[in-house]
Each structure stands twice: as structure tokens, then as C-alpha cells.
Amino acid sequence: MTHLLIPMLEGTLVSVKIFFFTLLFALPLGLLIAKAKQSRFWVVRKLINTYIMIMRGTPLILQLIFVYFAPYYIFSTSFDRLNAAIIAYVINYGAYFAEIYRGGIQSIDKGQYEAGKVLGFTKAHTFFHVIFPQVIKEIIPAMGNEVITLVKDTALAQTIGVAEVFRVAKTASAREFSTTPLFIAGVFYFIMNAVVSKVFDRMEKKLSYYD
């Protein structure tokens, strides 16, 4: 059993790594994109819209392949597989997160900005202390959905040869003529998402101290 479990645990670690690094970079990137989408410069808005359209309009699997192979054809060099995967996830999820942030930001009453302004707050203070905390509460359900999808989407990294848990399971399954490894992989995703759901539930509860 250990000959199966050890490589699968290593694969799990890779999946978890993709997951965390994607969140680490895509969460702030999404906010930045959401703000840029409100830019008063037409060119910036146009660029951001095009970017979001491409990210949401093409398959993630294709984006993974593109990020991994395109630099090779253009610069004759490429990222290592794991980094390429993380970059692809970050730019893809950044676009989705941006739309979630945007929805949240738009749901905040403009009176909140006005109150900040008449009290002499800087724009940054109003955003980070008045608007953003309310946005977080607003977007938690949508974010929860997206983050759960990300856990499962990490399986796509196998397309460019990243040895995440699903790829390890598939290889083991073929070698041993057994479906057990695939089943174990399924349990991994399930546990991981149970944890993610719990975390989001907690956050939702924590922010329910006001309406």
C-alpha cells in the first residue's frame, strides 16, 4: 500500500501547491483587474475587457497549453511545468475573481463613498476601510463556489505533465490494473473541498455580525 500512497501524497502536495499559489496571486490580481476595469481611461478598460473575455471565453486547458508551449516557440525557452501551470491558473482565476469583486463593489451603496468623502477620508482609506470589508461579506458565497472549482481544476495541470494527484492516480491505476488509486484521488478532492467549504462557512459566520 505504501508504494501507492507515497507517490499519491506527493501528487497531493503538488495539487495543494497549485491551489495555494493560485489563490495567493489571483486574489489580489482579481482586485487589481476589477479596479482597472473602472478606470477612467478608455484604453485600460478596453484592454481589461478583452483580457477577461479571452480568459472566460477559452478553455482553461488550452490556456495551460498556451502558457507552457508558447514561450518555447517565441523565446525558445519555457517555464518549468509547475510554474507554467500556476501562471495559467493565476491569470485565468484572476479574471473570474475580478468579475466577482466587481459585482461586490457595485453592490455597495454610493452613499458609503460619499460618507467617507465628507468625513475627510482619502479615497484609499474609504476603499480599504469602508468599501472593501463590505465587499468581502458580499462576495463570500460566489468566492466559495469559485475556490471549490479551483480545487477540482488543479487536475487539469496534468495536461502539461505536472504530476498532480490525478495524474499520479491515473498512472498507478494503469500500472496496477486497479481503480483504487482513482478512488483515493477522488477522496482527496472531496476532503480538500470539505475543508474549503468549512473555511468559507466560518468566514460567512464571522461576518454575519452585521446586516
Binding site: G111, Q112, K117, V118, G120, P133, Q134, K137, Y210
Partner: peptide, 19 residues
């Protein structure tokens, strides 16, 4: 901002910070 601080404004719908 400095000029605005001469003024205080009370809104029709309060605009308190709910959080």
C-alpha cells in the same frame, strides 16, 4: 479635503458604516 472639514454633512439616509 481640508476645505471639506469645515463642513459637516448629515445625509437623508444616514450612510452609517454598517460593518
Amino acid at each position: 479635503r481640508k476645505i471639506q472639514l469645515h463642513n459637516g454633512l448629515v445625509f437623508q439616509d444616514f450612510n452609517l458604516f454598517p460593518h
